[in-house]
Design a protein around this nucleic acid. Structure first.
Lengths: 332, 332
DNA sequence: TTGTATGCGTTATCAA
DNA sequence: TTGATAACGCATACAA
């Protein structure tokens, strides 16, 4: 591996100073077009690529943002990541991706690593760290977007973006209640998930609004498809009169639905199903799955654009709330 | 935002030179334990975080690797990314994630961006760029792993890791042939995909081995679930005697399977289905889907560990071949 | 329009 | 065991 050419190399070859080369490369004013073309030509021939690390050190701007997610294999986060990256590409930014696997220790490490990297901003998705750790960390970033996590007191350099999970759950449960169903279960996600907790609240609220009592027997939690299937079996056994299921994700919903079909229940005749996220699988299974949709790609893009606005000093801190949309298909 | 403390700040506060602080921070020999503890204590109090950009410039090592994928929303790649990131976390490395959306222009931009970032290595998944562009780019990285793409001539700094897609397809098709099926379709992926092309080869090879002629009428291609469903309808209409389907992904397989079930075909009675990737959905749908499995998390980890070995100069270039495993479930 | 001096925060090198 | 000085590659500020 031979050393990469530097500004100095170009300067020597072109017989000008480094600064002139720098200006030419960065398309800054202050030299004749003729000379600029000449320099660019030489740079190209020599195969010059500006060293962004050096540039970052000099300008204190790395054009890199940190993206922290619990688990990139969850479609929910991979879609957000995609949206973020798309906008980054448009604006010449780069993404440093960190998975935390919902572990506090790894979250702490992620925040620490990002501090040291001199990133221009951070997008933190569903972080769990206690506010006493999170707030000081946030304050050290030039700008940050906090997704699905609220702050007690607003910070001047952070925007919060949240999905209204509670309302989403209410919409789903209300819909089934309006169909005359009375025994609706919540096939929940991991108990530590903030979305899970919020949806549970929405579920309870919808029941309350309809004058129905909350029955803990009708709630299960679990993260994988296998667990959802097991939970569904347990629910059916405990509550044979079950007539509706709101699920934490489309995958859980499909798993649960198949368990019911296996046991000769009809969907939606005996039991209605509503999932969450509108994953590709939702419209592929039979019956096609009703679901709560939020445009995750859009959320990713919005997050990154908001971050860019803050970096450019064009936006004040604040908060967005994304409303999920109830997509009715054949399962409810 | 106040300026972050630097080595100089600590040095001043501790009444020693920057170098002594540097040595203390980096746990390098050359100073008394006593003094080291003293310095670390001050650094901690002051909230010092070493600036990795400056460190990277000085040492020419950024502890960052580039990960290029076509689309992080495809489970195939998000699982690999997760495996890569897990190993990165263990070794204190960072991941710069870039999506190329299968566009050559964006691939070129990705390679360029990574060159400029002074990364320690790169993992390139399913890149399409012609070898004449790819090879010179690869040579500029200290080390690289090339996933699902072959080189004509080996490079001393790159390891190739590939899934044996051809053999996988052969296994799947052979299995159906052994069941006595004669009209097996290939519900393919995007035609530009290298995996798609390899699997098509395997499909043809299996037919040939069985003495059957290849019938282009039995092949369709498309990337989304919707397209797969449309393609399945077309196949059924063109070839009513169809009795088996090998699909490019589990999502395509499920989509195709549901189309068949909708048209009152039985699975696997009338038509057998075998998918690819063993996604969660495969074991959740009914009938449960047979599929080709490779451990993607493992591939991600293997890629990153191999890259680390090369970075540390411990491994020579070479190539790995991953064999898919045929998982038989109810659909075949 | 072009060039010079200096600094960004850290580490390598060599001297004490 | 410690420290002074010079890189690393680029950009800012100021001068010519």
């Amino acid at each position: 591996m031979k050393k990469r050419p530097t500004l100095a190399d170009i300067a020597r070859a072109a017989g000008v100073s480094m600064m002139t080369v720098s200006r030419a490369i960065n398309h800054k004013p202050g030299l004749s077009d003729e000379l600029r073309q000449q320099i660019l030509k030489i740079a190209d021939e020599i195969g010059f690529q500006p060293n962004q690390v050096a540039r970052g050190l000099a300008t204190r701007q790395t054009f890199t943002i940190g993206l922290v997610v619990p688990d990139i294999t969850l479609p929910f986060f991979s879609y957000i990541a995609r949206g973020v990256e798309d906008v980054c590409y448009e604006y010449g930014y780069h993404v440093m991706l960190i998975n935390t696997t919902e572990e506090l220790e790894r979250e702490r490490a992620a925040l620490n690593a990002l501090m040291q990297q001199d990133i221009d901003g951070a997008i933190l998705c569903s972080v769990r760290s206690p506010l006493e750790d999170l707030v000081p960390a946030l304050q050290r970033f030039p700008a940050a977007v906090l997704f699905n996590r609220e702050l007690k007191v607003p910070l001047s350099n952070v925007v919060t973006i949240s999905v209204n999970d509670q309302r989403g759950a209410m919409l789903a449960v209300q819909h089934m209640l309006e169909q005359g169903r009375k025994r609706i279960a919540y096939l929940g996600g991991p108990s530590s998930s903030i979305s899970h907790q919020r949806r549970l609240e929405g579920y309870k609220q919808a029941l309350k609004n309809a004058g129905l009592a909350f029955d803990p027997q009708l709630v299960e939690q679990g993260s994988t498809a296998d667990m959802a299937a097991g939970n569904m079996s347990a629910l059916l056994e405990r509550c044979p009169d079950l007539d509706g299921v709101f699920a934490f994700s489309d995958v859980s919903a499909v798993a649960g639905m198949q368990v019911c079909l296996d046991k000769c229940k009809t969907v939606p005749g005996d039991i209605a199903f509503i999932g969450t996220d509108d994953l590709p699988v939702a419209s592929v299974v039979r019956p096609q799955l009703s679901t709560l949709r939020v445009n995750l790609l859009h959320i990713g893009r919005l997050s990154m654009r908001t971050l860019l606005d803050m970096i450019d000093g064009e936006a004040a801190a604040g908060s967005y709330q994304i409303e999920p949309e109830l997509i009715l298909r054949a399962s409810s």
